[in-house]
Design a binder for these strands. Structure first.
Lengths: 227, 227
DNA sequence: CTCATGGTTCGACGCTAACCGAAGCATTAC
DNA sequence: GTAATGCTTCGGTTAGCGTCGAACCATGAG
């Protein structure tokens, strides 16, 4: 017996065809629900549930509960790295691109999620705030940094009024089109409200789309640009 | 159902404990016979024969017949790379097969990763070469800069002979203990070979450890010191 | 409240694959 | 030649795991 980490445990997890299909699907970087992964793997939801439990316990997947949905994503870059290396070895057929299923371009760009901004512009705002360290995520919860407080105040939001509310200020929310995080919570709602207040955008009556004016688009891009 | 490279086939091969032990043993870079690998895995020779057949048919092992012996070795750098990456994941989960001991310390400092230098000294060599811009990473691939060419030549390596080989010259390999990059590819192999040639170090018979002499250690530190 | 939906647990079935004993080749040693 | 060593093939046993149907729990909608 040689020394070294136990490879077989992890590898046997990836070694099942159904689980491999799930992991491959998650390589696109977007979180998927248990049902979607079941369909992806061609098994029933019961079977998928068993597989997903093993993958999560094995440390390959990260789980985020949201309502009655469970969103799974790869646990980290190192997992993706292993999968990529395995695909290189298995270089039989060329790999396949994913179809995101675009319904409405405007909806994917910007839309309302309950009461906050979602879609591409929502995730970009979130990413920008994370990159500038306006938000930090020490544990499971999001908190606003001092720099973030300044940023939000300068945008014209009354933070004290929000803090008085007992609803959580910052919450992370997963996108159905982008499958990436954006900002929810009372701050997320306030941000969208302020965007409408400034005349940057208005909500469509029929759909959940958020329609930006040219001027609003410029303002938004300026807002999320690095300092 | 998503088509793609069949990572489950390869991964299920690695996923068996006996086969994983064999592959781990072969990470030392030495070719081993079927009987030795059987002992390594703790199974009878019949069972090992079956496993080795599968591994060879699966493209993970290369076979060299010599008399009545069969020498097995890893099929290539890409296989070693996958195994190393898997060890990184497994070590992360804290499922080490053997508890850390004195032998383990030597392994962390310097060991063989298939045919090149890994461990602390491997990553330090890599870092030093990156810092002096001997290696550049424009896209995904590593390339040797003119300064790097000079450095390697002065160390006594015949670069032209390496370039004649169609195997990639520089490759990045991720360490399971350091979780940082070190140099693989034909250049990585040549560097380790030169280190042994100079009498700076020798490989341990039993483990993957690379044991440096005091003189070799001095030479190595001088080599990676900034100009 | 009731209904619908997403996900889990349980039990049973069936298939696969790892394992070893014994016998069979093949090659080298004497 | 015979003996010994290295490895493979064959049969048969066993254990594990993937799979699905059915029932169950939890959340959200109306």
């Amino acid at each position: 017996m040689r020394e070294g980490p136990d490879i077989s445990r992890i590898s046997s997890l990836i070694g099942d065809p159904a689980r491999a299909s799930m992991l491959t699907a998650l390589m696109a970087g977007k979180a998927l629900t248990a049902s979607e992964l079941a369909r992806e793997a061609g098994v029933t939801v019961q079977t998928a549930s068993s597989h997903l439990g093993k993958l999560e316990r094995g440390g390959l997947l990260r789980l985020r509960k949201q309502g009655r949905h469970k969103y799974f994503s790869l646990a980290g870059d190192d997992v993706a790295h292993v999968l990529e290396a395995l695909m290189g070895l298995a270089a039989d057929a060329g790999h396949l691109r994913t179809r995101p299923g675009p319904k409405n371009a405007a909806l994917r760009e910007a839309r309302v999620c309950y009461n906050h901004l979602a879609g591409d512009m929502g995730t970009r705002l979130f990413d920008s705030m994370m990159a500038r360290q306006f938000l930090s995520q020490p544990g499971d919860d999001l908190t606003l940094s001092p720099g973030g407080v300044r940023f939000v105040r300068e945008f014209g939001i009354d933070l004290d009024a929000l803090a008085a509310n007992r609803a959580p200020l910052c919450r992370e929310c997963l996108d159905w089109s982008e499958r990436r995080s954006h900002l929810a919570g009372s701050l997320g709602r306030a941000l969208l409200h302020r965007i409408e207040e400034l005349g940057w955008a208005r909500r469509d009556r029929e759909t959940r789309a958020v329609l930006f004016t040219p001027r609003g688009r410029n303002g938004f891009e300026e807002l999320i640009a690095a300092p």
